[in-house]
């Protein structure tokens, strides 16, 4: 391997310099084309919007700066509830989802009944609309009248989201686990690792890396679905926006609330892209 020969004594040839000039010219050309295309697309969309007959009314009812400013404090308060719910639900969903996926892969005879339950759980829960689950938990659980069961709407709404999303996330984890090549299992077995050790140290780490994008998809979806709790009277961002809008006959707060949700999901998506790229670079460095 040529580790010596520092690059210092190498000067690019005339031909290479000419090629670099060509490449940067090509790059500039691409930037120009991309910029022009972007300007045209945005221009056409913007023009279609602004020139549409109802535009003045839409602007007045959906894009009013005064109402945006007025509704902001209550939307911020409401949004904090969405954020809290999301932050509490997300780790629980990850744990529960992974546990369900592992349960479905379990080979131990003792776990067979649980394996059946895990299948049933995902089948049933995935079949029920999330909003319906929220209703069932928020109104149904306290109605049981059991001693010591919390009656908080926030609590049961969060539980409903955890139940709903853990079923989706379990399937995502399962597809990741099943995508790990059988040869990996064989080599782990050959090292005399137990089934649990194989899962813990060989299969799950590879599976998780592969399913990061679909997992993220589910979490973006979860962030938005925290707004479902508005329907059971929790004062979240959507409920706050609706409250303000209905009182003042102006829908601008909806747009404000939407911006808040976007502001939360976009950075997460970019972060996951960066993480996935870094992982891929490290694992494929120099390889094919």
């Amino acid at each position: 391997m040529s580790t010596g020969a520092p690059a210092a004594d190498w000067r690019p040839s005339e031909r290479e310099l000419a090629r670099r000039r060509t490449r940067s010219r090509q790059r500039r050309h691409r930037v120009v084309v991309a910029s022009a295309a972007t300007v045209v697309v945005i221009g056409v969309l913007g023009a279609a919007l602004v020139l549409s007959p109802g535009w003045p009314r839409v602007r007045a009812t959906f894009l009013d700066l005064h109402h945006a400013r007025e509704s902001l404090p209550s939307i911020v308060d409401g949004f904090w509830l969405n954020v809290r719910m999301f932050l509490i639900a997300e780790p629980l969903i990850l744990v529960l989802g992974l546990a369900l996926a592992l349960l479905r892969q379990a080979q131990s005879a003792w776990l067979v009944p649980l394996r059946g339950l895990a299948v049933l759980y995902t089948d049933v829960v995935r079949g029920i609309p999330t909003l319906l689950l929220v209703f069932l938990f928020v109104f149904g659980m306290p109605a049981l009248g059991l001693e010591g069961i919390p009656t908080s709407i926030f609590f049961w709404a969060t539980v409903a989201l955890v139940v709903s999303y853990s079923a989706y996330v379990a399937e995502v984890f399962r597809s990741g686990i099943e995508s790990v090549h059988p040869s990996q299992l064989a080599s782990a077995e050959a090292l005399a690792l137990s089934r649990a050790q194989t899962m813990r140290h060989v299969v799950v780490p590879q599976a998780v890396r592969r399913v990061v994008p679909p997992l993220l998809n589910d979490f973006v979806s979860l962030q938005k679905d925290t707004a479902l709790v508005a329907s059971v009277g929790l004062f979240d961002a959507l409920f706050a926006a609706a409250d303000y809008g209905n009182f003042n006959f102006n829908f601008t707060p909806y747009v404000v609330a939407a911006l808040f949700f976007i502001a939360m999901t976009v950075p997460l998506a970019r972060l996951c892209d960066v993480l996935a790229r870094r992982l891929a670079r490290r694992e494929r460095a120099g390889g094919l």
């Binding site: 391997m1 040529s2 580790t3 690059a7 490290r282 460095a285 120099g286």
Partner: peptide, 14 residues
């Protein structure tokens, strides 16, 4: 190739 653990480049074909 870029070295991924240290600065500088590794010369593969010279």
């Amino acid at each position: 190739y870029a070295r991924h653990d240290e600065p500088g480049r590794r010369v593969v074909l010279d």
